[in-house]
Design a protein around this nucleic acid. Structure first.
Lengths: 114, 114
DNA sequence: AAGGGACTTAACGACTATGTTATGTCGCCA
DNA sequence: TGGCGACATAACATAGTCGTTAAGTCCCTT
């Protein structure tokens, strides 16, 4: 995305890329996940393997806290991963998710050009 | 929305409100409209009534430039209005739309708390 | 007041999103 | 190595989005 100067015109490609990120974000469930992942240790049970600080929260914990079925929860996480907003870490037979703070921090900047 | 301090926790209400704005924005067509409305005079034909600078662009012009049917275009505009991102002005039998710059400027700030 | 132009509403179809349950796959551990 | 636990995939139902065409409403002009 060519977004750097605040008031520049946005190309069609810029708009499409923006739409993709916004679609991933435009879900209360997924916003909630991002919110929880700000502090995994505070929002999820202690994990035996996978440091909450380092690797984030386990798939199952997130799904359970969301209160939806396991496939539904996993799909939300997949959307966030594919949008580049969270980073998955496989460890043993679990998958941990943590925020990609750099990518998330870029979003307000992108929005400044709309 | 209680968003003011950058790293504060977001309430469920905050998340729902954010979702609403993001859903309105998560459309290439609507992003394109906002882009055009940055400079109506540059993107739309001259209008007899309704100053482009003051009142924005006419519904019909926007719809035509979008390249969709008139009801489809009007619905996109309605979404933007209901999200508080553009302001409609009725004049004669036309409706002009302009950006609500204050509301739009608030969005990146809101996104800083996710 | 009749007609036309601008927009809205209604009704429909296609596609996407989000949820479900059932079933697969696959790594770990006993 | 047999089985369980964690996650993925499949198949399906429902709801929302976005497009269409056809009517409806309503103001303006003549």
């Amino acid at each position: 995305m060519s977004a750097s100067s605040p008031t520049s015109a946005l190309s069609a490609d810029d708009l499409a890329a923006l739409e993709a990120v916004l679609k991933a974000l435009a879900s209360e469930r997924r916003l909630q996940i991002l919110e929880w992942l700000k502090d995994p240790a505070a929002h999820f049970p202690p994990q035996e393997h996978g440091d909450p600080e380092l690797h984030g929260a386990c798939n199952l914990f997130i799904v359970e806290k969301l209160g939806v079925s396991q496939p539904a929860g996993s799909r939300h996480l997949k959307v966030l991963v594919e949008a580049g907003l969270v980073i998955p870490t496989r460890r043993k037979s679990w998958i941990y998710y943590r925020r990609d703070e750099a990518a998330i921090a870029r979003i307000p900047e992108l929005l400044r050009s709309i």
